[in-house]
């Protein structure tokens, strides 16, 4: 299936779960509710028409000022059909609070490390994660999330404007 066909199939099949869809940069993109995050991932992996067995990319964007939360973005890939899908969800959060979402590491084991990195950089809590330690930051980081907008700590030096 090409991107249009894939998007048409997914939006018809799971239309009660999808709140927004479109084609962004040639890749089919859907947005779901945070509550459906794990269930739709399971469906998309098990569906014989989509067969998304692999995660290419998984991360978050700090949209607290623009949209009022963190956006989780996952890019799925199917070896069998060679097609891609971007799936997004918005986790509402204000100030320094840490939003929670169910982990995807039970669906795709590769999501484990992506989630550990996202958790330590953005402060998103992945409920049910099998190994919620720091991945790349050292053990001292606690309550500090460096990829959040406006973060400044440690010996962080902001580049002066020219």
């Amino acid at each position: 299936m090409d991107s249009e066909g894939l998007l048409k199939y997914i939006t018809e099949e799971y239309k009660d779960k999808i709140i927004d869809s479109g084609i962004v940069g040639g890749v089919a993109t859907i947005e779901v509710k945070p509550g459906d995050w794990e269930s739709i991932a399971e469906y998309l992996k098990g569906d014989m028409e989509t067969r998304f067995l692999s995660v290419s990319n998984y991360g978050a964007v700090d949209y607290r000022e623009k949209l009022g939360g963190y956006q989780l973005v996952i890019t799925l890939f199917s070896y069998e059909f060679n097609h891609k899908l971007t799936m997004k969800t918005l986790l509402p959060a204000e100030g320094e609070e840490c939003p929670e979402i169910k982990t995807l590491s039970a669906v795709w084991p590769v999501a484990d490390w992506f989630e550990r990195e996202t958790a330590e950089l953005f402060g998103i809590v992945f409920v049910g994660h099998p190994d919620p330690r720091h991945l790349m930051l050292d053990e001292d980081w606690d309550g500090e999330y460096p990829m959040r907008r406006g973060w400044s700590g440690r010996d962080f030096i902001t580049k002066p404007d020219k």
């Binding site: 790349m136 930051l137 460096p146 990829m147 973060w151 700590g153 440690r154 010996d155 962080f156 030096i157 902001t158 580049k159």
Partner: peptide, 10 residues
């Protein structure tokens, strides 16, 4: 990595 880096020791 002197500017805008959270992970590098200066």
């Amino acid at each position: 990595f002197y500017y805008d880096s959270y992970s590098v020791l200066k």
